[in-house]
């Protein structure tokens, strides 16, 4: 299955990845060949098969509603690229 340049650009935007202009043909080719590989799945009829999300078909365990975490802001923000007054900072978002 062949993807074209605009598909790759659209995917890269959805995934928020900046790709160099000159890399797009390479990605297009790589992604197309990967899709050819995965499309081998389409040959099998799986209409009656329940999808398997977990190998054990296990069910969710529940946690008691207790506060177990204390304020750890100083340590957790010490690794932030930009934080001030206790807030993480990003370029101004216009809504």
């Amino acid at each position: 299955m062949a993807l074209d340049r605009s598909d790759v650009e659209k995917i890269a935007h959805l995934a928020r990845l900046q790709i160099d202009e000159q890399e797009i043909p390479q990605y297009t080719e790589n992604l197309s060949s990967i899709l050819d590989l995965v499309n081998q799945m389409q040959a099998v009829d799986t209409s009656d098969i329940e999808p398997m999300a977990n190998s054990h078909d296990a069910v969710q365990r529940l946690r008691a509603d207790e506060v177990t975490e204390q304020n750890n802001r100083e340590k957790l923000q010490s690794i932030a690229p930009a934080a001030e007054a206790g807030l993480f900072q990003v370029p101004k978002v216009i809504e």
Partner: peptide, 12 residues
């Protein structure tokens, strides 16, 4: 990046 893009495409 390749794998992120494949996965993004597959889920789109």
């Amino acid at each position: 990046q390749r794998r992120i893009m494949v996965g993004t495409y597959a889920l789109s």
